[in-house]
Design a protein around this nucleic acid. Structure first.
Lengths: 328, 328
DNA sequence: CTGAAAGCGCTAACAA
DNA sequence: TTGTTAGCGCTTTCAG
């Protein structure tokens, strides 16, 4: 009422046809004569009619809304992810209902519940782990759930994730090839599943080869923590190599090494990151890192969204190493 | 049908009350007896009932959806903006319908029209310029429109923007104080209104002080363009100062200056950016720049969203300069 | 091809 | 406080 959008009824009246004629005109596969269609279109244009998708969705149970939940949306990696995802959704005629889980620590369940209320057709979780009761509810209600870089121990959900352990392996192998004697693996206090997978895979491989690895983890997952790690590790311990589970950490580490601790990279210490964010390619860094293919990651999410199959799949997308200049 | 959400009717049946009793139980200010409320809540829990906000919105004409349109969502500045905005929206009980205008060049009108169809209560435009016919339609239909860092020549829309010209002024003054003789202003091919405002204000102030300014602009607004600018400008021209209309450009410029062109910054050339993105504070850069207060920018957007006033306002948020180490 | 009528899930005005 | 009734704007049978 307060809001002034024109309704199909008004258009119908003006065009001198029935309400359903209007509806048909705006429904892709419908049977309307050219004559009627023209009249309707004309009236609609004159009145400034806009289909009401909410009402539309109420009928056919398709809201066209895809819920996206994530944290820390301004971090380079996730923001790129969101960028690609939102473009892809739009291109497929789907709308992106974005819920920012401001606090990584907090449970994302309330957000997903909110998405239920909006009748989101599917939910893409970029960060945070949904409790299994929520996962059950998704399935019960026919809401497709897609977990990105998150592995749940169940077979009835879609998960698409990068091959973290293989990536960590590549990093370890490379550091071994560089003849590092004592290396560090740096992560953050958040200890997301992905981080843990990377760190443990790396550590295992290293120890299998008989090289010492010291673990560092503190603070949020960002540049500052990496910087702190660099200072800490390079001051006391005799580190000559580091694997940072995230590029942001690696970049901070790099700056600490070079600027604060006066080490040469890669001569004195080698460092490898994970993600390949844009900044890693910048001339001041040229970080050697493990690249997750964001585009295939996103493509997989999008197809998982569309496919009508018995929503059951675990998709691991391959990673590779890009050699730049931070490893000897 | 296909979708299996429980309806209020089913809950009512199970609780042995009327359909409206259920509705009331879930409506904040309603009159229901504790007894009924309890019964309803119990039944709802058992059945896994979730209010259908779409249907709800259909009634009271409040979709609770706020449309957000923007481009280049992975650029540091805008992604931070989106981060803050989406948090703020959620905190206020509003939902964020994100539309990524993949191509900056293209018209955002279709996106806004889509938002109309979803009956977005308000639309926040982070980038792109809405044609005036669309603005009219917003007003006609009671959809609040909020333009961020975009100035339209009308008084019936909300605009919140940073004080670009003052920022540019600060930059100019500082470069003059640094005794620069020949400076460059670097922007990109996009030439967004904000960029233009910055560049022209800077140029004017410089010329008023009798110092030469050469303008450079090409490519997208990013690190690479800045790098290119640095190479171009430092090779031929005898530049000893640069104002980059965006930090991303400035960072690229910096790398070009130091690494490719072997200049010392700030001894040989001074550079100032605009935005103060996180990377500008990183140890490898320590860029002196103009800071837009993203939080007050966002706060203003959010209040503009809520205020019931005659949607008419232009809010200019002040900027300041943060001195780091790239100006002599 | 077209209109009438029923219904999607919910809220609100009205009586009781 | 409660239930009944009438919509919100749209789609979709079902007759014609």
């Amino acid at each position: 009422m307060a809001r002034g959008f024109v309704t199909a009824e008004e258009v119908a009246k003006r065009a001198g046809v029935s309400r359903s004629a209007v509806s048909r005109t705006f429904t892709p596969g419908a049977s309307v004569s050219q004559a009627v269609r023209r009249k309707v279109l004309k009236a609609a244009r004159e009145l400034g009619y806009r289909v009401n998708r909410l009402a539309q969705g109420l009928n056919n149970d398709r809201s066209n809304l895809i819920g996206v939940v994530g944290t820390n949306l301004s971090a380079p990696f996730i923001s790129k992810q969101l960028d690609l995802l939102s473009i892809g959704l739009l291109r497929r005629g789907l709308q992106c209902l974005l819920l920012n889980a401001a606090d990584a620590r907090k449970d994302i369940a309330p957000l997903i519940e909110l998405l239920f209320e909006f009748r989101a057709q599917a939910i893409v979780v970029l960060s945070g782990e949904p409790p299994s009761s929520i996962v059950d509810e998704c399935i019960a209600n026919g809401v497709r759930l897609i977990l990105v870089n998150q592995r749940l121990d169940r077979t009835d959900t879609n998960m698409v994730l990068s091959d973290d352990s293989h990536g960590a392996d590549l990093a370890a192998l490379r550091l071994i090839a560089a003849k590092c004697q004592k290396v560090a693996v740096v992560s953050s206090a958040s200890q997301t599943p992905a981080q843990v997978r990377r760190a443990t895979a790396f550590t295992q491989r290293m120890q299998a080869s008989g090289v010492d690895v010291v673990a560092w983890s503190d603070g949020p997952t960002g540049y500052e923590s990496g910087y702190q790690a660099g200072c800490d590790l390079l001051r006391d311990k005799k580190i000559d190599g580091a694997f940072c589970v995230t590029d942001l950490l690696a970049l901070g580490f790099l700056d600490a090494a070079r600027i604060e601790m006066h080490r040469r990279v890669p001569e004195d210490v080698s460092v490898i990151g994970f993600d390949d964010i844009p900044q890693s390619g910048w001339k001041s860094y040229e970080l050697t890192t493990i690249v997750q293919s964001l585009s295939t990651l996103t493509d997989n999410v999008l197809t998982a969204l569309e496919t009508d199959e018995p929503a059951t799949r675990l998709q691991v997308v391959p990673v590779s190493m890009i050699e730049r200049k931070t490893v000897r």
